[in-house]
Design a protein around this nucleic acid. Sequence first.
DNA 1: CGGTTAATTGAACGCATTCAACACGAGTGG
DNA 2: CCACTCGTGTTGAATGCGTTCAATTAACCG
Lengths: 217, 217
Amino acid sequence: MTLAYHMNDPLGAHPASSLADAIAHHGAVASFNRNEELFAQEDEVERLFLVESGVVRTTRLGADGRRQVGGFYYPGDVVGLEPGPQHRFAAEALTDVEVRVARHAQVRAFVGDAELNRAILEATRIELERAQNHMLLLGLKNAREKVAAFLLTMSRASAGQVFELAMGRQDMADYLGLTIETVSRTLGQLQDEALVEFPSARQFRVPQRDALEALAA
Amino acid sequence: MTLAYHMNDPLGAHPASSLADAIAHHGAVASFNRNEELFAQEDEVERLFLVESGVVRTTRLGADGRRQVGGFYYPGDVVGLEPGPQHRFAAEALTDVEVRVARHAQVRAFVGDAELNRAILEATRIELERAQNHMLLLGLKNAREKVAAFLLTMSRASAGQVFELAMGRQDMADYLGLTIETVSRTLGQLQDEALVEFPSARQFRVPQRDALEALAA
DNA sequence: CGGTTAATTGAACGCATTCAACACGAGTGG
DNA sequence: CCACTCGTGTTGAATGCGTTCAATTAACCG
């Protein structure tokens, strides 16, 4: 069984993880339709998910309705790792999604306890890096810088080519800690300054990557 | 050798970690004066630190001078874990500090590879939780809520009693993603509303914890 | 005491938000 | 093919929260 790892791995680039391998080999195939929930906020942590196609989004809903998007998970990414026994974020299918699902115990039975720990540690580190980057983005960037940084992570690959945005403006806004209007305006600005081109709302090109990188701070 | 774990463990409460134990037993004692650097941003990750007395602060400096405080580490906390081979944050002694220091290899030699992984995983999870909480704080709280939440984490213990702030307003501001003036004003407000009392700038009481918690959102 | 750093307070500004209206595109059905 | 709708994205104008710049006060230490 061959998996097309990292054909697209914008947020949090990382090497193929052994945890991903384990889930791929020992997990069951499952599908979720757009907007279906893989697991809910506050659910018990039981299963590990490996995204095989489509995009998954994690979100946390505040009491008053404010929403924080934790991240976007692309094929090859592992979803479901948490620091504690409960999910602090819900996971939802942003597009139709195919995943491999495996219970912790199931993976452990196959790969052994020590190896499971090693693999989970590796994956947890990736998650930590993700969270730290996100923290820095929210903490010390303004709207322009946030949007620029976001576009760059969504395009970690060849420049000049056309990239697809799997998510809508609202998801971008909730990820960046901005409003949908600010995101839209900022994208407009950046386009006016020829730092990005939007053939359509969900597709973009980056004519000069270094100029965007300079902005992203 | 007995360590007074968690006499004070405000940011990111957690159970005594086995990694802490390992460092405590196999590490060397070291001291740092206020404002000394335990390690610098971009340094290679080599050593693990266990705080035994005093407080350590981690910071990341942006190109243009903006600073993000990553966290404050109290006695019992482990500093120096990172997702990658380089430190993304510097660590500085916020007060005079006593630590235990151990190299990864050193700990490994004593506790074994599997056990080291287990212990590091546990500590990495705590770090992940910290980063996620911080991300949520920065992403979906306004100034009042940030400050309220901060005071609460700095007082995870008995109410009514007096708590010490090891850090100054600038560190609080850089942790919360605010300016020093906003922090100062917000603390003033909260004091006017009798949600906190400041006998001095570095000491506070929380008369009614639940009222503050309601604010922290 | 003076000297220095940290913290507070005031006033004006500006970035992002809010509230509101409008445009666009993809389906759907007449 | 056009009309209608619904979801999504864009644009405009006004407001406000937090910042910025500036001055003052408080705390600390010789």
